[in-house]
Simulated scan of single mutants.
Amino acid sequence: MKVQTIKVTYAENRKPKPTGQLEFGTVFTDHMFVMEYTESEGWHDPEIVPYQDLVLDPAAIIFHYGQTVFEGLKAYITEDGDAQLFRPQKNFARLNHSNERLCIPKIDEELALDALKQLLAIEKDWIPTDEGTSLYIRPFIIATEPYLGVAPSKKYKFMIILSPVGAYYKEGINPVKIAVENNYVRAVLGGTGEAKTAGNYAASLMAQEIVSKEGFAQVLWLDGVEKKYIEEVGSMNVFFKINGELITPQLNGSILEGVTRDSVIQLLKHWNLPVVERRISMKEIEEAAENGTLEEAFGTGTAAVISPIGQLTWEGKDFIINDGKTGDIAKKLYDTLTGIQYGRMEDPFNWTVTVDAK
């Protein structure tokens, strides 16, 4: 693959930085990365340009058939003032996994990481430094060919945009209430559940809207066939501590392979704590809650990092977990992951990548 130079065009006018409490994903930085794909040239013309609106043909395939993939990761300011990333190689590898499922040409992962580092070097002063804040990074690819036939696009646009953010959930590290979904289905084996694509999230919106009106933070999805085995929360993978053992649903083709999920499994093994990946049913959770062996539950994801679950509601029953308090394991995982991400703790896994400032 030929070496490509990333062209940079700087914004003439800089936006004011946000002040006060940051919401998630509402403010965007001065610049973004853009790269085009055509059948004749492949991926070409990588650029960092001022953040701007897109001009697309109304017949672009993205609008009609949803051929798109995306990723989510973060940049942090360490105590030494450096900007650093957390396992970005995993995100770009997963982006290519999603590309394969959605019939999108694979990107050069090294070029993508280099582009991200250059973009972050330009936008370093956008990375917030208050406790719990970070710069959210959204790489994504959309199909841009104007064509109304059902077929993979022959043209694509790869972009990276940045947004300074605070906590994903208003509860922060405090436990959230989760509703178990029995009616709607997010994904099934053979579908696109293990790809990070827009349609999966659009399919989740109805259930999320319903439960949010009842005070729940998220939906816990069950398998789409028997509707009995736990899969994932809308924006997170999920773990349960039952009788001293940490259990997370095994990857089965309809569950997203979370980067934070993998990091948590590695940390638990590093601490010599028992952790298994297997099928787990809501019936098993119900029995553990009733006999007192359900000790903790928490979600894992880039946006929230670790989100303790204080209550699960299923078929009209409320299961209060750990008296609705944050569990010891969830707290230790949160402190360790954020400690590594912000450079406050040793990184024994070489997960962090430093960004060279301009």
Rank of each mutant, 00 (worst) to 15 (best):
P139W: 07
A121P: 01
R101V: 09
V150C: 05
R101G: 01
E109M: 11
L162E: 02
F92P: 00
K170R: 14
I104D: 07
E123F: 08
Y169F: 15
R94E: 14
R101M: 14
I173S: 14
I142Q: 05
F158P: 01
E171Y: 03
G172F: 11
W126I: 04
P105A: 09
E110T: 14
I137D: 08
P164S: 06
L113G: 00
K157P: 00
P146R: 08
G132L: 09
E123W: 09
P175H: 04
P128R: 08
K124G: 00
Y136T: 01
N96I: 07
G149Y: 10
G172C: 06
A121Q: 05
L120F: 07
A167I: 02
D125G: 02
A167D: 12
V176Y: 06
Y169D: 05
I127M: 12
P139R: 08
L135G: 00
P146T: 06
L148Q: 06
S134R: 05
R87P: 04
N99R: 03
A112V: 05
R87T: 01
Y168W: 07
R138I: 04
V176M: 05
Q89H: 14
D130A: 14
E145A: 09
R94Y: 11
C103R: 12
I107T: 11
K117M: 14
T133I: 09
I137P: 04
A121R: 06
I104K: 00
A93H: 13
E171R: 05
F92S: 04
K124M: 12
D108S: 05
P88F: 08
I173C: 07
L85T: 01
A115N: 03
F158W: 14
D125P: 02
V150K: 03
T144I: 02
K157V: 11
R138N: 06
Y156L: 09
E171A: 13
Y136H: 04
T133D: 10
L116N: 02
G149I: 03
Y156A: 09
K155Y: 01
L162G: 02
I122T: 01
A83T: 14
D125V: 07
D114A: 11
P175F: 03
G166Q: 08
K124T: 10
P128K: 11
E123P: 04
E131G: 00
I160M: 12
A143C: 05
E110A: 15
S134T: 03
E110K: 14
F92L: 11
K106Y: 06
K106T: 12
L111Q: 12
I122F: 10
L119N: 05
A83F: 06
G166F: 10
K90P: 00
D108L: 02
A167H: 13
E109D: 12
L162F: 10
P146C: 11
L102S: 01
V165N: 03
